[in-house]
Design a binder for these strands. Structure first.
Length: 692
DNA sequence: GCGATCAGGT
DNA sequence: CACACCTGATCGC
């Protein structure tokens, strides 16, 4: 649970995910996602009063978050005061002190956080440096490195502080099976059950919270069965979610809830009250998504545990594991990292200590790296600016980052076409000072260690010389083949789930030859804290009559395969890209104009990154022409009218009175230069917000 | 009657 | 397990 107080040291005049106490004075509010623990004070009378008095105060969030929030009548009073910002669209906001008229500009960029629909991280750039507030997030290893807007000039931006989701920032949660593994495990369990007969139904015992939607959509897509839920009106404008949900209780997959659900279930009753179909009683199993973790990397991960005769627990996490946090931070390499969450049994200091080694400041024994061999150039460049000079600054013989072709990037709530690096992203040690990586990479066999339990974890203890970074055991993994995201596997249809232990498996599942009994195997006796509860190799989803169900208290382990048995094909189908249809009144549109001075431009050049501007008063008006990758291409857009709410390809540019509008010819010139691969000679440079 | 907080539940 | 809620009791306005 977030214990972030709402304010960041660098930008204390804005408040994020907290709306009480000191935050009542904020000049602007930000909401990272629609979970209650990030909405404290958001509907309090005190804040309502503030809104009535301070007409320039707005709440900024993603389009999906806006939609989810406004669907709840209790938050509808926000309607005229929310401004949604497209994902991956740098947007300038004026922070005005209404008392003094003092004004500060800040550029915010929303990055997908992978936590629940609409969840984002906020990247702020302004006069006090670049800071990243992650909100809650789950990003797989390497995902941050694929976010272009975290980069500038081919390397990660100089980030002063990260305000980090540290929910699992505890070595105990070292590894959590990937989203794909978990999904695939649940999918096969559900499939194996509901294909037995129309009277076999599954109850997904999910909490009342956003975040399970990608599970529902994928199950529905793969199995052709909609998921029964209590409410779906919040998704009315997100067809990609909506189509996989139903309020019809007749389906075989339920995610409905009831206060006495557990009690119901014991009486073979689904929470919606259903007990039979055509007068034939149902056969039910329950699957409870919960976070399972592993003390260390295991070759195979058991993502399903049988907890009772017809009860299962399935691995599912909205939050990044310790090693994912490590990877994230290691990439960002901020000066400071502040925990937003204190995991149970931890203290703020303990978490900070864990984070410290991954921050630059702790590595200050290393002299600040200055690239050598710089060519003498006539013009001067601001020392901090990272733009334009990679050819000259780059100390490495090879480019740091190869821009690959466009690939599909996977987020639970956002699927967008994003340019990503095809190679394992290089660690930018030369600029970040994260030197430890290199050292660690030379310990070859962290990767191949057999799956084992906490026992052997000790054997793998990091050499004393490296103890300064107890977290770094993970680093070599990042280079391991097995750990490179298996894009091919994720995105190709692959129905064959291979299990090396096939022959060891108990015969099972008579019904439906197409089922995958092989999945229901123990992972050759290994040892995660999960399987360790029970050493039985059992695994069966056998027919009820056979010895399967009624056998002892054994735990069924469903192992996902090493290289992901895949078949998460629907992840590739944009199934979880909510599209919001316009439903806002025109009056909430924001006038947007392009600001693209050469300064900001040069900083954002790596991908024609423009800045959208929201004028200080944000008086919503209509929208002006928009420039994107092609300067010829002006589009009329309004801020909330995107059909694809999370695509980054459409820009809205509100104008601000003081905005320096770029000349069209100038832009054209710049674009042409860039297209030709030429460098852009900035004239007299003015320091821009984005140059920090 | 409403909200904030806490305890206890899933 | 360890999330993100819910409900209910108590207190204060």
């Amino acid at each position: 649970m977030s214990s972030f107080e709402g304010q960041m040291a660098e930008y204390p005049t804005i408040s994020i995910d907290r709306f009480d106490r000191e935050n009542l004075k904020a000049r602007a509010y930000f909401l990272s996602h629609c979970h209650k623990d990030h909405m404290k004070g958001l509907r309090a009378p005190s804040l309502k009063r503030r809104l009535e008095c301070s007409l320039k105060v707005y709440l900024y969030c993603s389009p999906v978050t806006k939609e989810l929030l406004l669907t709840n009548p209790k938050y509808r009073f926000w309607e005229k005061r929310i401004i949604s910002i497209e994902i991956e669209t740098p947007t300038q906001i004026s922070l005005v002190d209404e008392a003094t008229g003092k004004k500060e500009e800040i550029v915010v960029t929303l990055l997908p956080a992978g936590h629940c629909p609409g969840s984002v991280m906020f990247l702020f750039q302004g006069n006090n440096g670049t800071v990243l507030y992650t909100g809650d997030f789950r990003l797989a290893k390497g995902e941050a490195a694929r976010m272009e807007l975290l980069q500038s000039g081919g390397r990660v931006k100089d980030i002063q502080s990260v305000y980090l989701d540290t929910t699992f920032c505890d070595p105990r949660f070292y590894q959590i099976p990937s989203r794909e593994e978990c999904l695939s495990g649940i999918l096969e369990l559900v499939r194996s059950w509901i294909t037995r007969s129309p009277y076999h139904v599954v109850w997904l015992n999910c909490k009342a919270a956003y975040g399970y939607e990608y599970l529902f959509t994928n199950l529905s897509q793969e199995l052709g069965v909609q998921v029964h839920v209590d409410k779906l009106d919040m998704f009315r404008n997100m067809p990609d979610i909506l189509h996989h949900l139903t309020t019809d209780r007749g389906t075989q997959v339920h995610a409905c809830r009831h206060p006495k659900a557990e009690e119901y279930f014991h009486r073979n009753k689904i929470p919606c009250g259903t007990t039979s179909k055509n007068r034939i009683p149902l056969h039910t199993i329950s699957i409870k998504p919960s976070t399972m973790w592993f003390g260390e990397r295991t070759r195979k991960t058991n993502v399903i545990v049988r907890t009772g005769e017809s009860s299962y627990r399935a691995c599912f996490s909205f939050h990044s594991s310790y090693s994912e946090i490590e990877d994230f931070l290691n990439y960002i390499c901020p000066v400071n990292a502040y925990p937003n969450v204190i995991p149970m049994g931890m203290t703020m200091d303990k978490v900070k200590e864990i984070l410290k080694p991954l921050c630059r400041s702790s590595q200050s024994t290393e002299p600040k790296y200055k690239p050598l061999g710089k060519l003498k150039r006539s013009r001067t460049v601001h020392p901090d600016s990272e733009e334009e000079d990679d050819l000259f600054d780059d100390p490495l013989p090879t480019p740091l980052r190869h821009k690959g072709p466009y690939q599909l990037t996977l987020h639970p709530e956002v699927f967008s076409m994003t340019a990503v690096s095809q190679n394992e992203p290089e660690k930018l040690t030369e600029s970040t000072g994260c030197f430890e990586n290199k050292i660690l990479q030379s310990f070859p066999n962290f990767i191949d260690c057999e799956e084992s339990n906490s026992e052997s974890e000790e054997e793998l203890e990091i050499p004393a010389s490296l103890q300064g970074n107890p977290n770094s055991a993970i680093l070599p993994e990042q280079k391991a083949d097995t750990d490179v995201p298996q894009w091919d596997v994720f995105f190709k249809k692959n129905d064959n789930i291979v299990d090396e232990d096939l022959e060891n498996l108990p015969s099972s599942t008579e019904t439906g030859g197409s089922q995958s009994p092989k999945l229901f195997s123990d992972s050759d006796g290994e040892s995660t804290h999960i399987s360790s509860q029970n050493s039985s190799q059992s695994t069966h989803i056998t027919e009820q009559g056979s010895q399967g169900w009624d056998s002892q208290s054994d735990t069924v382990l469903l192992s996902s395969q090493e290289k992901s048995s895949g078949d998460i094909t629907s992840l590739n189908k944009g199934a979880y890209r909510p599209k919001i249809k316009e439903n806002s009144p025109a009056s909430s549109q924001v006038e947007q104009n392009m600001l693209c001075t050469k300064d900001t431009y040069s900083d954002l050049k790596s991908r024609d990154q423009e800045v959208t501007i929201i004028p200080n008063a944000a008086e919503p008006t209509t929208v002006n022409g928009v420039l994107e990758h092609s300067p010829e291409e002006n589009r009329l857009q309004s801020i909330s009218t995107h059909t694809d709410s999370q695509s980054s390809s459409d820009f809205e540019i509100p104008s601000t009175p003081e905005a320096e509008l770029p000349k069209r010819e100038h832009l054209q010139y710049l674009y042409e230069k860039l297209a030709a691969g030429e460098r852009i000679a900035a004239g007299k440079r003015k320091r821009s917000l984005l140059d920090i």
